[in-house]
């Protein structure tokens, strides 16, 4: 099976190329990226063939593409990929407006290709175990969920994360979708109301986008959940950040700390000191495997366009709530 990566603007491209290479029978044909310096560096580091134009890579004849561009360029690349007949795996958030996201759905349908949203939180063994626990009723009635996906400022690594035009926003656009999707999936429900406080509190003089956000959401099954999407870990924190989910139920409570398995490293040469080097399972590997399996088995992937779309709606509702200073309802 022939797979390509369209754009490496998103940091996750580095992980995905390794995930793809690890799957037997996959040929990673190459990656496309318009910026020569970045393209050459990626090529040198990982040995993946570089194409300076997306069309050129697509002309190689691919079964599927992984799209790792800036958020606001997803639509353009999904359209190119779909028109070339490729199955799509798209980085999150799927786009920055509903109209763009809907256009992506239309072009996929028209060209008969399927669309998967990259939500690795669904594939971590800890979060899968949590979902099983919830769905089997082991926690009893769930009172609420405390969700944390706070991180460092990613624009220190890739500047576009803090570019309103390219990213569509800051911390809220970057992080909310992971937990919004996880909650929808874990509880088999939809988000029906969102209250949010979002502001640029952490880098007021350096960045133009929001850097702090707290959400309280209500789901259709009545469960309340909070999401902290802030870029509130300093750049000198031992790791990029955290994904934590605490579910409090009548019969018990469960805490997922997705990246807790780490070594603490104090190295003279360390980029961070100390640094937490993880040794837990890589959730991206089973996510990429699911994409490949869905192509092989010619079926819908387990995470769909609609999942990406519903998560994006939560983000847009959060921005609206923060602006209006009141809860915003979502129709389903």
């Amino acid at each position: 099976m022939r797979i390509g990566i369209l754009s490496i603007a998103h940091l996750h491209a580095a992980g995905y190329q390794a995930n793809l290479k690890a799957i037997p029978g996959i040929e990673l044909v190459g990656f496309s990226h318009e910026n020569s310096a970045e393209g050459q560096a990626f090529n040198e580091e990982f040995g993946v063939p570089w194409f300076s134009s997306h069309q050129e890579l697509l002309a190689q004849g691919l079964d599927g593409v992984v799209i790792c561009s800036e958020n606001a360029r997803h639509r353009e690349l999904v359209e190119l990929g779909a028109q070339a007949g490729c199955q799509i795996l798209c980085e999150k958030p799927i786009e920055i407006t509903r109209a763009d996201a809907e256009a992506m759905k239309n072009v996929c349908d028209k060209n008969g290709v399927r669309f998967m949203t990259a939500f690795p939180a669904r594939f971590a063994s800890s979060s899968r175990a949590l979902r099983t626990m919830v769905q089997q009723g082991e926690l009893g009635k769930v009172f609420g969920v405390n969700g944390i996906n706070h991180s460092e400022n990613p624009s220190g690594h890739r500047a576009w994360f803090a570019n309103k035009q390219l990213a569509g926003g800051g911390a809220a656009m970057d992080h909310i979708v992971h937990l919004a999707d996880f909650f929808r999936w874990c509880f088999s429900t939809e988000v029906i109301e969102v209250y949010a406080e979002i502001d640029n509190l952490i880098y007021p003089n350096e960045l133009e986008v929001d850097t702090a956000g707290l959400l309280l959401i209500t789901m259709s099954n009545g469960i309340q959940a909070s999401i902290d999407c802030s870029w509130s870990r300093p750049t000198w924190y031992p790791r990029w950040g955290h994904l934590k989910i605490e579910v409090v139920g009548e019969k018990g409570a469960a805490v997922v700390d997705g990246f807790v398995q780490h070594l603490t490293v104090y190295a003279k040469s360390g980029a961070r000191n100390p640094e937490w080097i993880g040794f837990g399972p890589d959730a991206n590997q089973p996510m990429i495997q699911e994409f490949i399996d869905s192509i092989r088995e010619q079926r819908e992937p387990s995470v769909t366009w609609n999942d990406g779309y519903q998560a994006l709606r939560v983000v847009l509702a959060a921005y609206e709530s923060a602006q209006r200073k009141e809860p915003v309802k979502l129709e389903h």
Binding site: K141, F143, G144, Y195, G222, Q224
Partner: peptide, 9 residues
């Protein structure tokens, strides 16, 4: 302030 509260059945 904004708050959500959930009670046991």
């Amino acid at each position: 302030v904004y708050a959500l509260k959930t009670l046991a059945d």
